[in-house]
Design a protein around this nucleic acid. Structure first.
Lengths: 210, 210, 210, 210
DNA sequence: TATGAATGAGATTTCATTCAT
DNA sequence: TATGAATGAAATCTCATTCAT
């Protein structure tokens, strides 16, 4: 039957994804989305409330999945060290499967409600990192530092998807980055412990002692 | 004198910086830039060729500076380890001084020639990293990995400026991130050497160096 | 039914024809075309790609017809002398029916691609004249002279349409001009043959033909 | 002294002539005229009241000369047949010397007061033709026909100047066209006399009588 | 005589959205 | 479900012209 013609809704979503990716949300024009989708504007407005609704439909499910995985990831890293890398791999896989959406989210949502969604994501990951530090004996970690670390980690994911690497290559990179971050993390823990003890009153002789 | 009334050109640039920051390049409207600047559109087009020219005037000098510093940074990291952190500090300082511009560059240039400028920046840093790895005995580093590391480092800079930390706080964070990255780097070197020896039993430099 | 409201497209074309006629292409403003047509600018841009496209739609069909007729005219003048005046009459009629378009073409297309269309038309007629001269034994006619004669003939057509003569009056004028040009032509042939024989005593065709 | 720098006024006139020629009056922009003239807009408005004043300054002197010559031409053609061709030659020469201006007048003045100047010119020539016909015994010539003949003659002049022929070539062409027109004129006179006698009441016996 | 910054209306064009069919 | 013509505000940009210096 309609094998030749995908449903309008899907065609629109596909075309919109491309346009948003290419020109950003503001820069993308409904006209050209509709043209690319082979659909009239009337059909568009039957399927979606407005331009923003398409963006929402593109990004929301991905975001939901991502948040879910992120939470699992964080939890498992905290509870059982073994499965940590598994969760990490899943996340990489999910991002890899939805390159376009994540890129739109990152670079194409200026002036959109989604502009601030990343911060939400980051806050989630930041919590996870916080617990992790605490597990290693650093009670009160500077939230500023945490934020940066989280963003670096996210960036590492995104760096990968912006290229057209295969899933295998992507996973290999993810493992290497994992090593990098783990080592960095341990070094920081050491540093912070030292700084923490330096801040205590007897700084002077501690310096000599070390 | 004319202290109360800055030159139109400067007013326009100021207003444009704000608008681009807030709404991205596409989302920013000339009308509202002009209104904010207290200037007519005619005056605008006397001062600038078009909308894009303002963006150019805002971003170009910053980019030039950044590229310069980046090169110095790379060079000094390669030649004398001591001054590395100095160059690093300068770069942090420069980015901190031009928060707005960098944020515009990052998130507000979709559909603009500047969209791809980051890649240029990254390529510069990537070269530096490459030399660094070679210095540590890793001859042919996977460019994919390099790219990710570079982007993480850049992201660390940018993460900081998006918050309103003081310059002091910013620099402290930068130092901590420096530790993190150095440790991560060393771990990677170790990992890569192992992988290398597993895969290519008798590389030339391995025979001599190890 | 909807006799009172012509289609937007037609209303726009009508209004544009008037405006172009009155103010030339550059001088005509879309705003006032739309207002005259009782249509919004949006409607205009739904129907036409841009201002130039309306001009194209107005002029192209007329030009095509004209070129067609011109070729027929030329051919018949060459082959059978009798029908020559028929074709001529048809052409006059056609021009008379499209006064506005031809006047726009003549006087209102400065700075437009159509600016040079007349030259194309003229080249067509010039070819015809050339054949005509050859038929009368003038082998190589000065193309400069031909060009002038052609333009005079075209001008004669256009002179007529710029006034509001009836079709009958127009045709009568056309006949008179026909006499004028025929006589002029014959005089020229005589002159050129004399000049030719003075300059080139024994041309090939002269030896045989005369 | 100021050999290197022509007076602003002259520079402006030169640049305007070029621009009007190229883009027509409406299409020509003051900005680009000023830029081409190496002059600021302020300087322009010191020298000229407005855009139209430049056009006036370019066209008026030429028009005055042309009208003068035209009258002489007409008069001499009427009084002494010998000098007719002299006056004709002068006119050709004058037009040749002011190609640009005449072309501007013809094709670049849509929407300008000068749009209708041609008609004035033509009326002058038409009067001359009228007298000429009367001299040959055609009392009341159809003004419609006269107008066409005049326009054809003018067109012949203009046809020549739009090409870059030398003055010599131009004059030769003018002479040939002169032959063409004279012969055409004579044929018309004959025709009109016949038509005239046909139209008079006592046609029947006149036909026999003549 | 000029400068050149500024004006502000108006140019063409594009936008997201609506609505009768 | 869809069409596609229409809306009208707003977009970017250009215009001839002015004016303080």
């Amino acid at each position: 039957m309609n094998t030749e013609k995908e449903s309008s809704r899907k065609e629109i979503l596909k075309a919109a994804r491309e346009e948003f990716l290419e020109k950003g949300y503001k820069g993308a024009s409904l006209r050209s989305i509709c043209k690319k989708a082979g659909v009239t504007t009337g059909a568009f407005y039957f399927q979606f409330e407005n331009k923003e609704a398409v963006l929402k439909e593109i990004l929301d499910p991905i975001l939901a999945q991502f948040l879910l995985l992120m939470n699992q990831n964080v939890k498992s890293e905290f509870e059982e060290e073994a499965s940590s890398s598994d969760a990490d791999e899943w996340m990489v896989e999910m991002i890899w499967l939805h390159k376009a959406e994540f890129q739109i989210l990152m670079t194409g949502t200026a002036g959109t409600p989604y502009e601030k969604v990343f911060e939400t994501l980051r806050e989630g990951l930041t919590n996870g990192f916080c617990m992790f530090f605490e597990k290693y004996g650093i009670a009160k970690v500077d939230p500023k530092l945490l934020d940066v670390l989280v963003r670096m980690r996210i960036e590492s994911y995104l760096a990968v998807i912006q290229k057209d690497y295969s899933l295998e290559e992507t996973k290999k990179l993810a493992r290497q980055i994992g090593e990098y971050c783990d080592a960095g993390f341990e070094a920081l823990v050491k540093l912070l412990k030292m700084e923490g003890s330096e801040k205590l009153p007897k700084t002077e002789y501690q310096k000599n002692g070390n």
